[in-house]
Amino acid sequence: MSELLPQQQIDKLKAHAAEIEHPHEMIVDVLREIQAHHGWVPDAGVVLTAEILGITPVEVEEIATFYDKIFRQPVGKRVVHICDSICCWSTGGEEIADHLQQTLGIGFGETTADGLFTLLPTCCLGACGDAPAMMIGLTTYGPLTATKVDEILAKERAELAKTTSGKD
């Protein structure tokens, strides 16, 4: 996953940008596509987004740095977002966050040595009825217990092992 986006996808985005009146509105879309393909958005991704949309890199950067779900630093293959807002907090979210740090052996903002998981706190995930909750990639999980967290991480690991071996 060293390339930012496949050429075909770049061409498609450029063609769409040329068709619409306000290509600016595609900034978040393009950043999300780069992130989906490359895992995170490096400086070159900001420049590529600007080039696709015919705008300046700073116009992209002011957007990229605003959103907490656009990663401007390297992250693991899966980002684990653990909710720390009120409903999860009141149902044991802090204990789940502690368990995640212990079992992954990392603190918030860190990535496991095998490069698989990055752990980040997040505000409310809109899963308040299933609290405490977390999101891995784009999938929400809850209500969590320490045992369930272990099962989910094992499942994610197995899926990652499958995709990696399939590609290599």
Binding site: S85, C87, C123, C124, G126, C128, G129
Partner: peptide
Amino acid sequence: DEMEPGTYKDRQ
């Protein structure tokens, strides 16, 4: 946007 903590009705 539904990001007010405690709110998940629109998702439902």
